[in-house]
Design a binder for these strands. Sequence first.
DNA 1: TGAATAGTGTCTTTCAGACAATATGCC
DNA 2: GGCATATTGTCTGAAAGACACTATTCA
Lengths: 225, 225
Amino acid sequence: MTNTKTISTENQRPAVTVDVLVFTVMDDQLMVALIKRGIAPYKGSWAIPGGFVHLDESLEEAARREIEEEAGVTDVFLEQLYTFGNPKRDPRMRVVTVAYYALVPGNRITLAAATDAAEASWFPVSKLPPLAFDHQDIMQCAIERLKSKLEYSNIAYSLLPPRFRLSDLQKVYEVILGTPLDKRNFRKKILSLNLVEATGKMDTGGAHRPAQLYRFKKRKMIVFS
Amino acid sequence: MTNTKTISTENQRPAVTVDVLVFTVMDDQLMVALIKRGIAPYKGSWAIPGGFVHLDESLEEAARREIEEEAGVTDVFLEQLYTFGNPKRDPRMRVVTVAYYALVPGNRITLAAATDAAEASWFPVSKLPPLAFDHQDIMQCAIERLKSKLEYSNIAYSLLPPRFRLSDLQKVYEVILGTPLDKRNFRKKILSLNLVEATGKMDTGGAHRPAQLYRFKKRKMIVFS
DNA sequence: TGAATAGTGTCTTTCAGACAATATGCC
DNA sequence: GGCATATTGTCTGAAAGACACTATTCA
């Protein structure tokens, strides 16, 4: 039996990377940040941004570094998704990638193209281009996680600005779950969960009745019992 | 920006291991398989069994190999849990470990001590010894996952023999969740889920009324809506 | 006053949880 | 007959889901 924690003398080890799926809700759509690969393999294909884990940083630190380089934001919601390690997933060498997903508030985050990337861009998850490597699998895994976590946690807070209308919150749920929701039932449910509170300020300026602005009581993840 | 999938010329890479938490229900307790470390660091401490990922095998294959070496069983329920990569988690070198958990039917699985392990043994999760490395964190993560997955999937099938009494199934739930359950409500719930069916055979031999033996209709994981 | 969105309540159905008595086989 | 476990149903409260009208602001 190969045993736990023997010091490895093998000189061949897998490379370890992190890939980060950055999601946001913009223009009533769930969007994800992708980069266009500037080098082979899959040159010209779109891919999930990622990079090597440095020897002195944790996996989460590596993921946060990627997000900051890509989107210029810190302090975003970030959660480990799954680790992909099929021996053939990268044709060049053995790469084990730890996938993370991040959620950023909608609008006004400009993506930066990475060193080896020709371009970086937001895509609606409903209209994704073909993706490099096994990134289609990773994407699907992330979308499933996001959908289910939305239903039993308060992670929606990380997709909204500090103050928002209940209709904004409802839109986040509708766009991610892909179904319209009944306004009365939605509000009843959200308010009974006691996660948000009215700020007293109104959203004025639309050609219609102003809406109460709400905020999340806690801006960290809470999983419902 | 360090970019996706540039060929690494770094000669220093983390080691990649898999650790596998093998659970079973025995003697009305949730048990986990541990090994006693035969080498430093943590020599003499109990640890979660694991080992290096070979370059030509997937992460899951590595995990299944470990289970077969440790417990001599194949074809068990196995699911990836989480990846632990803190730079300091192993004092010797950088080790990224992909943790898996496995579920095996109760009783009569004999553990084999690994090459570098002095011993292998089952422990009730309620009375664990101090664990090596960050294995306490990994253990807690696994137990939480097991508890929650038990409630919204049919994974209990993997902890029971092909035929079982409903009271056996109830015991599995009680032991893992750590609470007694009402017999009538439990049976009502399980039967309404339509996951099990009566085999027509009875469990005879006890000094009491024989019980109907049931089986799971599907022996693969189903996640409830 | 018309357009656009905000805000609100009832009824029905379903599910979870509390709760106790009878049935059957073995000794 | 006594012991040990199997088997079964009702009631209540909570939550989910269907469903439509009035309120308010601005142009």
